[in-house]
Computed example of a mutant assay.
Amino acid sequence: MDRMNALARQVPTWVVYLAGTLPFLWLAWNTVQGDLGPDPVKTVERTLGTLGLQFLLASLAITPVRRLGLNLIRFRRALGLLSFFYIALHLTAWLWLDMGLRWSEVTADLWKRPYIILGMIGFLALLPLALTSSNWAIRRMGPKVWQRLHRLAYLAVVAGVLHLLLLVKIWTLEELTYATLAACLLAVRLFPKGGRRGQAVA
């Protein structure tokens, strides 16, 4: 594990950002090539939303993985920002490509379809986290306040998983895997850090 940690320390964080944008570039290329199937808009929406959820789960996995001895904490900000990037694009694709910026229809859909409300809750939970992700924000707010605010990530992942489960008509192994991972990652937070009850877990 020490060897893996040493290797991780040698990886610049920009590598994570670069690797995280590759799926977007691949999606953009397939869009230009017309390789997105019979319903390209839905493919774009689903791909962006799935990537956002995957990066959010990866960012939440940093703490339990650290307990096992692998310290990847320096990459958590990058994973969280990549999650927000894809979820914001997912929302943009729905508003622009799907709804055509027809705001009356957008409002109607918000009330008719609970999974859209859950998706908006997830996005709004991530928005303040993205806005306060800098070192300046941590210093300005103080570590304790900043850490409490960033527990909104738990709300975001719950809303995101429920959004996905209500969206699809049939739950496949993929959806069940995301739901199970989210449940496990949240359950880990119930166990006190260092074995002491009552202490908050980041």
Results as ranks from 00 to 15, higher is better:
Ser83Tyr: 00
Leu95Arg: 11
Thr132Val: 05
Leu110Ile: 11
Arg148Asp: 14
Leu162Gly: 10
Leu68Cys: 07
Arg139Glu: 12
Phe85Arg: 01
Leu129Ile: 12
Arg66Glu: 04
Leu167Cys: 07
Leu152Glu: 09
Leu124Ser: 01
Val161Asn: 07
Leu164Arg: 12
Pro114Tyr: 08
Met120Asp: 09
Ala78Asp: 00
Arg140Gln: 14
Ala88Cys: 13
Arg76Pro: 00
Arg113Asn: 06
Arg74Gln: 05
Gly100Tyr: 05
Phe123Trp: 03
His90Lys: 14
Gly69Asn: 02
His163Asp: 13
Phe85Gln: 02
Trp146Ala: 04
Leu127Glu: 06
Leu155Asp: 15
Pro143Asn: 09
Thr92Trp: 14
Lys112Gly: 06
Lys112Thr: 03
Thr107Asn: 12
Gly100Cys: 13
Val158Asp: 00
Leu167Thr: 10
Thr132Ala: 08
Ile170Trp: 14
Leu81Arg: 01
Phe85Val: 03
Leu81Gly: 04
Leu82Cys: 12
Leu70Ala: 03
Lys112Ala: 04
Arg140Asn: 02
Leu126Trp: 00
Gly69Arg: 00
Pro143Ile: 09
Thr107Gln: 06
Val161Thr: 06
Leu166Ala: 10
Ala130His: 15
Leu152Ile: 10
Arg102Pro: 09
Lys144Pro: 06
Ser83Trp: 00
Leu131Met: 04
Leu167Phe: 13
His163Phe: 11
Phe123Gln: 15
Gly160Gln: 01
Ala78Arg: 00
His163Tyr: 09
Lys169Ile: 08
Ala88Asn: 02
Leu81Met: 11
Tyr154Ala: 15
Phe84His: 05
Val168Thr: 11
Leu126Val: 10
Trp94Asn: 09
Trp103Asp: 08
Phe75Arg: 03
Asp109Thr: 09
Leu101Tyr: 04
Tyr154Trp: 15
Val145Ser: 02
Thr107Phe: 11
Arg151Gln: 11
Phe75Gly: 04
Leu91Arg: 07
Gly119Phe: 05
Pro128Ser: 11
Leu127Cys: 11
Phe85Thr: 10
Trp111Leu: 08
Ala156Glu: 00
Ile117Lys: 14
Leu164Glu: 12
Ser83Val: 06
Gly80Asn: 08
Arg148Ile: 06
Val158Lys: 00
Ala108Glu: 08
Met99Gln: 13
Leu89Val: 11
Ser83Gly: 12
Leu70Trp: 09
Val157Thr: 14
